[in-house]
Nucleic acid binder design. Structure first.
Lengths: 342, 342
DNA sequence: TCGATTTGTGCAAACGTATTTACAAACTCT
DNA sequence: AGAGTTTGTAAATACGTTTGCACAAATCGA
């Protein structure tokens, strides 16, 4: 049988309530009693029962998450791992744990959230991704339950952390311009995603600001897949009048481009310079190493966790949308070779 | 105020205990009552309070995990993500959730586990990695608390899931032999790790079984790092009498080798054939794509979760050590070119 | 038809904690 | 010295469940 607060009380010759107060550092407890009780607690190896505690306090000190649906993509995997690391690290520092559960089906995700919320199993929820008109978000709003979204969302009346993708893309494009390029294309993702739209916007803005005319032909849409890059590459390289550099929506797409280029015998960055987004581990390992915008995935998770716990503790956030800074990591794929050698 | 079992009882005109019995499908409840109560539950949007329930039943339906310490390595990240996916998916299917917490320090990990165990916060614990003489394992054994280890461990009196690394390495080596190689080297990891020793053993066994003499000079130790591969490559390629193929302890190490080879103008697999372990996503993307032993990381997590929940439910495992099957994925890095073209 | 069994439900006691109320003892101040 | 205040502790209650026990009603077997 596990040792309870009563056992400690009995052995210390005090009442259970006194022990409870010692635990919660109640001001009106005598130093002497406190010392003695703590001594006994250590001696008996007492740890308070978390379930009992949260039953009465109505707090679980737990953050809930839904396991994202199987995502075989490299970036997704990396994103997931780093995100969780950020979330859990911060949560633990603040005395919170992270609970993960999986919905059995598409519909099951909402069911899982409902169980967590109504069952009072968690104090708040972190959402890793959201579809348009997400029923989970609707539910959480209706219940007025604390939650935060990592990533972007059409509405801006919910708590979320995100990158400034417009600025990030602006920076990427500016970098290429500063390397002497003025013939720059853009390989985008699915056009319905906010991230695609934002990055496209930043690219356009950078061109405009530098008096470079936008060639609409040089903007290609696709998926977050290698194949997309491959296709984009073959499209661009067959153009009679082609760009000398590309801004690419995601590192994984760039890998498709790289493979295609190497098959055709083109060199990077000599024949084509490349900058992309997310700075996955692989970006550094590829040949040539990729220039990439690091979006701070760990940080995204860390912030989300922090903002959510604050929200749970009743603090009013100054703003709903928090931006995690990005950072351009320059590697060989976008270095102006001539400049290096001259 | 949340709706409780009492509210349902009142509205249904029965006692709380009856409602409770309806929820748990007690046999002695009349179909009529059950129907009516369920109706009311739905109507009121009732969900039972998980904390209260687990307080009395002494079950949490939660599996605990400790967040692994920051692991910047690609493989670690991939391993972590896939593992969690496997664990959580299986757990959810069986009605369990997964709780993650982080120790603040080295010592803090044990503290975190203690809190989970003594605080009765989880029903079992999954360990992702273990050092030799791990105090956490010692603690869990002492408390006789259900847990499972993913990976290998010196002792074999604890529940664990692992790969058959000897056989896996044997298979990798046999594959190279079947491609016509008989001059095969081995790039190992840290010699104190069981995984290194096991894979080395499998390699040796394959050579012996095929009457190939082991060149001790062709076995190199290192780390799970790119640099290790780079060093190994330069060592091997400078040998007057060098191997035509290598078995490599980890894909990440192979990347180091690849980079080195391409710098020196060597071709894979023509000048050197390669097979390694873990089959990370990147293995497929590299040029050339790598042959690799897939160790079934998702499966490892899935099995661990399954065995642990069974153990929790009192089932006696047939054996303590469970082997997850591996699978050789052949790609260009080990294909005998001549054979393909002739 | 009547005792024995089965069936359906309520009552009350737990689970381990936090918290409110109460109260005695020990101070403070004039 | 006595009223008022502060300090330290205990008793009781509540949190939302589950479950053993009790018991009336219904069913059964002869």
């Amino acid at each position: 049988m596990a040792v309870t607060i009563k056992d400690v009380a009995r052995k210390a010759g005090v009442s259970p309530s006194t022990v409870s107060r010692v635990i919660s550092n109640h001001p009106r407890i005598s130093p002497e009693t406190s010392r003695r009780v703590k001594e006994i607690m250590k001696q008996l190896g007492y740890h308070s029962n978390i379930m009992a505690r949260s039953l009465v306090s109505n707090k679980t000190f737990t953050l809930g998450m839904i396991l994202p649906r199987p995502a075989e993509e490299l970036f997704q995997n990396h994103f997931f791992a780093e995100n969780i690391r950020g979330i859990t690290t911060q949560a633990s520092r603040n005395g919170y744990d992270v609970l993960m559960t999986a919905g059995h089906s598409e519909h099951g995700e909402l069911e899982a959230v409902t169980r967590l919320v109504k069952g009072k199993r968690v104090d708040g929820i972190i959402l890793l991704q959201s579809r348009k008109d997400d029923p989970i978000i609707a539910f959480l709003k209706k219940e007025d339950f604390p939650f935060i979204l990592i990533g972007n969302y059409g509405d801006n009346d919910i708590l979320c952390v995100d990158n400034d993708n417009v600025q990030a893309s602006y920076d990427a494009t500016m970098h290429l311009i500063s390397q002497g390029h003025h013939r720059i294309g853009f390989v985008s993702g699915p056009p319905n995603l906010t991230v695609s739209r934002d990055r496209l916007e930043g690219y356009k803005k950078a061109l405009t600001d530098n008096g470079i005319r936008l060639e609409t032909e040089w903007v290609m849409e696709g998926e977050f897949l290698q194949e997309s890059g491959y296709r984009a590459m073959s499209f661009f390289m067959n153009l009679p009048d082609r760009p000398t550099a590309l801004v690419v929506i995601d590192d994984i797409v760039t890998f498709g481009i790289l493979r295609g280029l190497s098959e055709l015998g083109y060199k990077v960055p000599d024949d084509l310079s490349l900058v992309s987004f997310n700075n996955i581990y692989l970006a550094e390992l590829s040949s040539p190493p990729l220039s990439s915008i690091d979006i701070g995935i760990y940080q995204l998770g860390y912030m989300a966790s922090q903002l959510l716990t604050r929200r749970i503790q009743g603090e009013k956030p100054q703003q709903l949308r928090t931006i995690v800074p990005h950072r351009l990591v320059v590697r060989e794929s976008s270095l102006n070779i001539k400049r290096n050698w001259s």
